[in-house]
Amino acid sequence: MTDRFADKLLTWYDQHGRHDLPWHHDRNAYRVWVSEIMLQQTQVTTVIPYFEAFMARFPTVHDLANAPVDDVLSHWSGLGYYARARNLHKAAQQVVEEFDGEFPKDQEQLESLTGIGRSTAAAIIAQAFGKRATILDGNVKRVLARYHAVPGWTGQTAVLNRLWEHAEEHTPDERVRDYTQAIMDLGATVCTRTRPDCETCPVSGGCRAYALGETTLYPGSKPKKAKPEKTTWMVILEDSDGRILLERRPPSGIWGGLWSLPELDPAYGPEELSEACEQRLGMSCGDPELVSGFRHTFSHYHLHIQPARLPVTGSTKVADTAQQRWLHRDEALALGLPAPIRSLLTEPEQAALL
């Protein structure tokens, strides 16, 4: 049975869809997979330069699997949600070790790879192999929630199950590669989160939310919860050779596995920072110079960062280890750094507050 939704969507895609994205060229499972992971919670325009640089450095799954994780993270720096990069690296190693470097074409086997869920596995099957598979990423959820007027937040199991049913119902047997791109494009360019362009939408004639004049009600919003506020000192410790001390963050959690600046308890006052550095790191430091603080927002809390520069005036007990390194700025910038830390190390000197 012909599905009018898919039929109209494909006709629209032929004229208005995106046909020339970088991962459409030399299309294979590896390139599709990397693009899908990068596109999670990130817009296409942001992803394109990262994808091209990533492919230049890691052109095959073997190149990615064999690369140091620091190299992978450095090419991810600025994209955020760094667990994606760590999972990407681990999954590449799984593909090489468990599947002889060939991505499986089976949904269940793809989902066995680290960081690949149901929708991402389906996208790889449809986009790379041209086989019928049903996707349900953020854009698709929004399109289908409006088209069928499905109430509720898409993070709720019952709502998600209904959307999966609708997604399966509309996925065609033919041109599935074009269809999956088309429905993602529709959500990204027409059925947008705010101010959807319903007048140009190819499926608005059957859209229940549009007929009701209530497109803004679908999908339902996530229940709001106030984000907690946290504060930390970040110290830029510079020795007599002009090197800065960096510390690797734990493998899980915020900025997991990335290199960052040492942190000190916010309970310390500015005049206590030198003593705190000696207690925690075993080094003598001069007076601190505070620079403009800023707030960085994570998915579940706000972090107020107060940076301070301290010259190291004596010998230090801190030697290079797997978790700590003394590096010149250009060396530091070659590592995987969180975007705020990269900015602190690259922006011009800011006016001191002390």
Rank of each mutant, 00 (worst) to 15 (best):
A85G: 12
A92S: 14
K105C: 12
Q43H: 00
Q107I: 10
T60N: 11
F54R: 01
D100E: 10
D70S: 06
E108S: 10
A92T: 05
E111H: 02
H62M: 13
F58M: 08
E97H: 13
Y50C: 00
Y82D: 14
P49K: 08
F99A: 02
Y50R: 03
N87L: 01
E102L: 09
E108F: 11
R57F: 08
L79N: 03
H89P: 01
G80E: 13
F58R: 05
T45N: 14
F58C: 05
P104M: 04
A85T: 07
Y81T: 12
R86M: 08
F51R: 01
F54H: 04
E102C: 10
Y82N: 15
V96F: 11
F58E: 02
T42N: 10
E108V: 14
Y50E: 03
T60E: 09
H89E: 00
G80I: 11
N87T: 00
T42H: 12
V61E: 07
A56C: 13
S74T: 00
D63Y: 10
F58I: 03
T46Q: 15
R57H: 09
V72Y: 05
V72R: 02
V44P: 05
V72G: 00
H75M: 02
L64V: 04
V44T: 10
K90R: 15
L64P: 10
E98L: 14
T60K: 05
Q41L: 01
F99H: 12
P68I: 01
G101T: 10
D100I: 03
Q43E: 07
Q94V: 11
G78L: 05
R57A: 13
D63K: 03
Q107C: 08
L113N: 11
Q43D: 06
A83V: 10
V95K: 09
V44D: 04
H62C: 04
H89T: 07
K90D: 07
E108Y: 10
L73H: 03
F103S: 04
H75R: 06
A91G: 04
A65N: 08
